[in-house]
Computed example of a mutant assay.
Amino acid sequence: MTATPNPQIDIRRADERFPTKISWLDSKHSFSFGRHHDPANTHHGVLLVNNDDVVRPGAGFDTHPHRDMEIVTWVLQGSLVHQDSEGHNGVIYPGLAQRMSAGTGILHSEKNDAWRLKGGDSHEDPVHFVQMWVVPDEAGIAPGYEQLEIGDELLKGGLVPVASGMEKHRDAAAIRIKNRYAALYAARLQAGQSVQLPEAPYLHLFVPRGKVRLEGAGALDTGDAVRFTATGGQKVTAVEDAEILVWEMHAAVAA
């Protein structure tokens, strides 16, 4: 982990993200990912991946491995089927928090084919989701999986803990991650509603849907993100109906 640097607010616009677009996938990467590598853009705090993915019906990510990573998936539209080598399977949909701990090694797949599990007809709806990776406190932990419905909490309009390893969320966070320095929040905001960001050495604000205004910085559109260092507490106000994802982090990966 590294020492906290000087205060900074770094706005990253949607069109600055690395794109991956193929027949079945439209993905935007906030940080270096796959063939896209920029040594100056590998992480913020302990967040290494913030992928904004749209997958067409009947397609998805075939079985592939992960190791020593806490992976949180947040669906905005449609549904995503998860299956892994530890025997876990489930359908992830809006309002469902899901975490996979890769630990010593895990294989999993993610497909836009929930209709198959239900025995229904094919559909034409894409699935839109954000997948985020943070490093665990320690390597070599046992793989794990957890999901929980938090849709009712989101209806209240405030920042809702989605996933956390922090002690302050022990009785509040929907799911636990194996990093005691990090927490993810989500908020669904109607036009005019506001939330206040936490204060932390590192924050990452992402706007996957809608348009908001950040106090002191102006408008943020769909796909925009802000990396805060040694600051926080700003107000975020929805200009139109919007959804935001916020990582609060009290440590950083060594550069």
Rank of each mutant, 00 (worst) to 15 (best):
A142H: 06
A173E: 10
V127I: 03
K178Y: 14
R180N: 13
E138Y: 03
K178G: 07
P161M: 04
D125Y: 06
D171N: 13
H169W: 13
G157L: 08
P136N: 08
I150V: 14
P136H: 10
H123K: 06
G165N: 08
R170D: 15
V127K: 01
P143L: 09
P126S: 06
D152I: 04
D171H: 11
G151A: 15
A174I: 04
I175M: 08
K178A: 15
A163F: 04
E153P: 00
L159T: 04
P143V: 08
R176A: 15
D121M: 11
L148N: 07
F129L: 11
I141G: 09
V135W: 07
R180Q: 12
G144P: 12
V127P: 00
I141M: 13
Q131S: 02
V130R: 00
R180S: 14
E124F: 05
P161V: 03
Q131Y: 00
L148W: 06
E146T: 13
M132C: 14
G120T: 07
E146V: 11
Y145L: 05
M132I: 13
H128S: 09
D171F: 12
P143I: 06
M132P: 01
L148I: 09
G119M: 05
S122N: 13
D137Y: 04
I150W: 02
D152C: 03
R176Y: 11
G157V: 06
P126E: 10
D125N: 14
G165C: 02
E149C: 10
V162D: 01
D125V: 13
G165S: 05
I141T: 14
N179H: 08
L155P: 00
A163V: 08
D137W: 02
V130W: 00
L159R: 01
S122Q: 12
G157H: 07
G165M: 05
M132W: 04
R176D: 14
P126C: 04
L154F: 02
G165P: 04
E149N: 15
M132V: 11
D121Y: 03
F129V: 01
P143D: 05
E167N: 10
I141N: 08
G157Q: 05
I175T: 15
N179M: 10
E138I: 09
P161Q: 03
L148S: 12
Q147L: 10
K156G: 12
A174W: 03
E138V: 10
G158I: 01
L154G: 02
G120F: 02
E153V: 00
M132N: 11
E167Y: 11
L154E: 03
R176W: 08
A173H: 08
D125M: 13
M166H: 13
I150E: 03
G140C: 08
L155Q: 15
Y145K: 03
D152M: 06
